[in-house]
């Protein structure tokens, strides 16, 4: 095919009128935006130094419970009759791990 024939096609296609949007198109876009629940504008989150701490708190709480649990277990289940306190129990545990 000659170049000029292709150019004729382009020229003819250029004359094609664009379709108009169907009535209510703007309303449908607005509804889609509402559904999408776009972030509030122009509100922007203001992060503070407390935010990362808040993120860490649940993990810190779990770690604390685990450590306390281990100490109780090492201390004979926390039975006063078993003698000694938590500090002694921890010391005994460390001694067992490192020197035996």
């Amino acid at each position: 095919m000659k170049k000029s024939r292709l150019d004729q096609l382009f020229a003819a296609a250029r004359r094609e009128a664009a379709p108009e949007p169907r009535p209510g198109f703007d309303g449908r876009v607005a509804a889609a935006i509402t559904r999408m629940d776009a972030p509030a504008r122009p509100a922007r989150s203001s992060a503070t130094w407390l935010d990362p701490l808040a993120g860490w708190l649940p993990r810190l709480a779990v770690a604390t419970v685990v450590v306390v649990g281990i100490c109780f277990a090492a201390d004979g289940g926390g039975d006063p009759a078993a003698g000694g306190d938590l500090g002694e129990g921890a010391e005994e545990l460390v001694t067992q791990w490192f020197f035996e």
Partner: peptide, 15 residues
């Protein structure tokens, strides 16, 4: 011969 004109919709179909 290239004597025929082409309608926009036909041109679009070919393109």
């Amino acid at each position: 011969a290239g004597s025929r004109a082409i309608e926009a919709s036909d041109a679009r179909e070919l393109l």
